[in-house]
Design a protein around this nucleic acid. Sequence first.
DNA 1: TCTCTCTATGTCATGTTATTACATCTGACA
DNA 2: TGTCAGATGTAATAACATGACATAGAGAGA
Lengths: 135, 135
Amino acid sequence: MTEAKALTKNQTLVLGALSGANGPLSAYDILDRLRPEGLRSPLQIYRALAPLVEQGRVHRLESLNSFVACAHDHTHGHHSHSPVVFAICETCGQVTEFSDEKVAQQLRGWAKDVGFKTGKTTLELRGTCRTCLAA
Amino acid sequence: MTEAKALTKNQTLVLGALSGANGPLSAYDILDRLRPEGLRSPLQIYRALAPLVEQGRVHRLESLNSFVACAHDHTHGHHSHSPVVFAICETCGQVTEFSDEKVAQQLRGWAKDVGFKTGKTTLELRGTCRTCLAA
DNA sequence: TCTCTCTATGTCATGTTATTACATCTGACA
DNA sequence: TGTCAGATGTAATAACATGACATAGAGAGA
Ligand SMILES: [Zn+2]
Ligand SMILES: [Zn+2]
Ligand SMILES: [Zn+2]
Ligand SMILES: [Zn+2]
């Protein structure tokens, strides 16, 4: 099990801002929310984000250039290494995070066949969530 | 079959630049390559890219903020709507494009189960290609 | 305690990616 | 010829991200 590392002051602020949001935030959105706490520059946000993303407490959504707090429990270590799928509702902004072992397996199979060594996998679905479809 | 639409002058230039490149190019990379042809502003590039992406002749790589020419034949219409997977070598920049019906099926299944209507799917693998692993 | 060093932080400047607003050109066609 | 739609040109600006350098604070060891 990976040890849950203590967070620095700025990391705590940034993670708090993301956890308190009801959807993804850009680094500049986060900055705006943390100005009252004394943060002033984008770099402070990006610096705090880097280790949070590294540890899996925060995920970067490539198709939005923004960030979300991980939906899983991180007090006892980070979640599995099955690539994570993000379903992003373009109407309400909600992000649903899940992982799918079949998809992971299939992609591993392709990689093995062609000799590709996979690092990070980005898998994002843009669309409309059930709630917004009903409305 | 979708009719292959004629390209405008700028679209032709941009698609040519992407086809001639051996990897993904950012809009500004494309602009630099097309300055000799008289293009001067980023907007000219973005405007040409939009319909090319729309038609599937060019793909946008979200994890790189850049663009590649589609690897498939577009003279007789565009390729299947199975979501496309991009494997991006971080060493040599090569992008391999493929589609995987099992993955597509699995994601459709998830979407059906939770009532999510999927629009665009982004699926990108970052890693190292066979050739670069061997080197 | 003193100082060395490592990490985190603060700030300014800059680089990179993308869009808004507005003017002009071109060709189809009534 | 006059009108209109689509394509193009240009300037300005917004949005996202990093480089370079200075400072502050905590802990190790003399
Ligand atoms: Zn997560
Ligand atoms: Zn929704
Ligand atoms: Zn393609
Ligand atoms: Zn390679």
